[in-house]
Design a protein around this nucleic acid. Structure first.
Length: 502
RNA sequence: GGGGAUAUCGUCUAGAGGUUAGGACGAGGGAUUUUCAGUCCUUAAGCCGGGGUUCGAUUCCCCGUAUCCCUACCA
């Protein structure tokens, strides 16, 4: 039987990195096995705040970002449509009614107040919490009277009171749970929507799902899910529980740890291939290959359930940054530049591109004055960039109006723009550079070496003050590439300003 | 309170009875250079504790401990 797996997110906002990994693992598993990858929207919780209709677009964007596109989903359908649970309510209701008819489920008329009070009491007395099954054995008359009175009800699963449920986890082995300890799970809510358990079992069956790969946090409730499958008379898919991704403090990954949601990662400028590669290494390993850099085809080729580990993994942002830097360094300059442009625009370093209605002249000017300059500058910082968002800080001095000492780093100034030979040096440079026939890194270096010899200064004694004078800082790309990229006019202007105010 | 899972360098992990316990990030040192970054070389750093089983346990079993998860008309 060919593999059919699904990613079943809820639209609660921008997807969490843990859910993204679940999606990717499902996708890799399907691709590796030549199976089908399905995405299904589990939007059965209509509680305000927990139901974010726009979340669906984030979900779609995240899958596109990784290139982990489903074979079947709500965007372009498939043979198991619908893929949005709220569009299929009658189906779940039918399932619930059938279970009632077969006495595998029952209507429960208990109010939330009673349930809350019961739970509070149980907790106060140190008793296990759970539904006391009061409505499970209601007489026909009681039931009829409740219905006649119009009391709202939910449908609960009549959990077997004896025996055991075995969760056959593909990586953890068999895990046995006592049925008497399992709650009579609500299957259908008063609003007519199914709960996760009903919707999941019903849809997994309907869609022919063969394997369930989901977070470890579902393991404890797996016996309840299995009992829903059993009650419905459906085969239980193979189960694979993925280790959780946690924060450095071993707590659930949250905002204060850094980026956690898809949007956060995109904003900070992580490349899809870096995030994909890194995420796959959290809770999965290719084995004894002693390698951690993998392309997507390599991941597909190697991915297997045996390689999944069983303990939670801490999300190491440092390692992600390293990996992102690695992929940025290997990036085609054209692609890198394209990815950096939005950051530069957002920071106000470069103007917005002219509208399509703008004149050809305007477009040409933008191309020459902005894009060509960006094209020269970005590659110079490529090997230093760890996240795209850093580009703003890295190349800011190329664009910003430096007006000595405004915009200059204090320490840099103190160290290199207070040297006694500064003024003669700068004046000589202005003279020589202005007369330079060819504005290339090589010519600039040759000229500068001559200057340093002429003034009997060490090369480093020339390099450092020059860099600070022209960039306002002590770190950056090679000085002559920097001068070359900045252009003669900008270079001379900055040297003059510093020289005059020195 | 009940139930479940998990436990190898700081972190991600390899290991599946006998290994100098391997790799990567990070950290330290060195080389290169024009600063930073990068690259190359290099060092330190680990089997949660206690019992078993075994000729021999990081590895298998039990107990303890710790951590996380579930215990909702949330997924």
């Amino acid at each position: 039987m060919s593999v059919r797996v699904r990613y079943a997110p809820s639209p609660t906002g921008s997807p969490h990195i843990g859910n993204l990994r679940t999606a990717i693992f499902n996708w890799l598993f399907a691709r590796h096995a030549g199976g089908t990858f399905i995405a299904r929207l589990e939007d059965t919780d209509r509680t305000p705040g927990r139901y974010v209709p726009e979340g669906i677009y984030e979900l779609e964007a995240s899958m596109r970002f990784f290139g982990a596109l489903p074979d079947e989903w709500w965007v372009y359908g498939g043979e198991s449509a619908p893929y949005i649970q709220s569009h299929n309510l009658p189906y779940y209701q039918l399932c619930a009614e059938r279970l009632i008819r077969e006495e595998k489920a029952y209507r429960c008329y208990c109010t939330r107040e009673r349930l809350d009070a019961m739970r509070t009491e149980q907790q106060a007395r140190g008793l296990p919490t759970g539904y006391d099954r009061r409505c499970r054995h209601l007489s026909e008359e009681d039931r009829a009277r409740n219905e006649a009175e119009g009391i709202t009800s939910v449908v609960r699963l009549a959990m077997p009171l004896e025996g055991y449920t075995v969760v056959k986890d593909e990586i953890r082995g068999d895990i046995t749970y006592e049925n008497r300890l399992q709650d009579d799970q609500v299957l259908l809510k008063t609003d007519g929507f199914p709960t996760y358990f009903l919707a999941c079992a019903a849809d997994d069956h309907r869609m022919g799902i063969t394997h369930i790969l989901r977070g470890d946090d579902w393991l404890s409730s797996a016996p309840k899910l299995i009992q829903v499958f059993v009650a419905l008379g459906f085969d239980v898919p193979k189960m694979v529980h993925l280790p959780l991704i946690i924060g450095p403090d071993k707590k659930k990954l949250s905002k204060r740890h850094g980026a956690t949601q898809f949007l956060d990662f995109v904003d900070q400028g992580y490349l899809p291939e870096a995030l994909m590669n890194f995420i796959c290494l959290l809770g999965w390993s290719a084995g004894d290959e002693n390698r951690e850099l993998f392309t997507v085809p390599e991941l597909i080729e190697r991915f297997s359930i045996e390689g999944i580990s069983e303990h939670p993994a801490i999300f190491d942002y440092e390692k992600l940054k390293w990996m992102n830097g690695h992929y940025i360094r290997g990036c085609e300059p054209g692609r890198l530049i394209g990815m950096c442009l939005p950051y530069l625009r957002k920071a106000g370093l470069i103007p917005e591109a002219p509208l399509s209605s703008a004149s050809d002249d305007e477009k040409e000017t933008y191309r020459i004055e902005v894009l060509d300059y960006v094209r020269r500058v970005i590659p110079l910082e490529q090997e230093r960039m760890k996240m795209l968002s850093e580009v703003v800080d890295l190349v800011g001095f190329f664009f910003a109006e430096l007006d000595y000492p405004n915009g200059y780093e204090e320490k840099a100034v103190a160290k290199w723009l207070k040297v006694p030979y500064l003024k003669p040096l700068l004046e000589k440079q202005i003279e020589v550079y202005s007369a330079l026939a060819e504005w290339t890194p090589e010519a600039l270096e040759a000229a500068t070496r001559e200057i340093s010899e002429g003034l009997t200064l060490k090369f480093a004694e020339v390099i450092h003050p020059t860099r600070v004078a022209v960039t306002g800082r002590t770190v950056g790309p090679g000085l002559f590439e920097t001068l070359w990229a900045m252009g003669k006019e900008r270079t001379i202007t900055r040297l003059k300003t510093v020289s005059e105010r020195a």
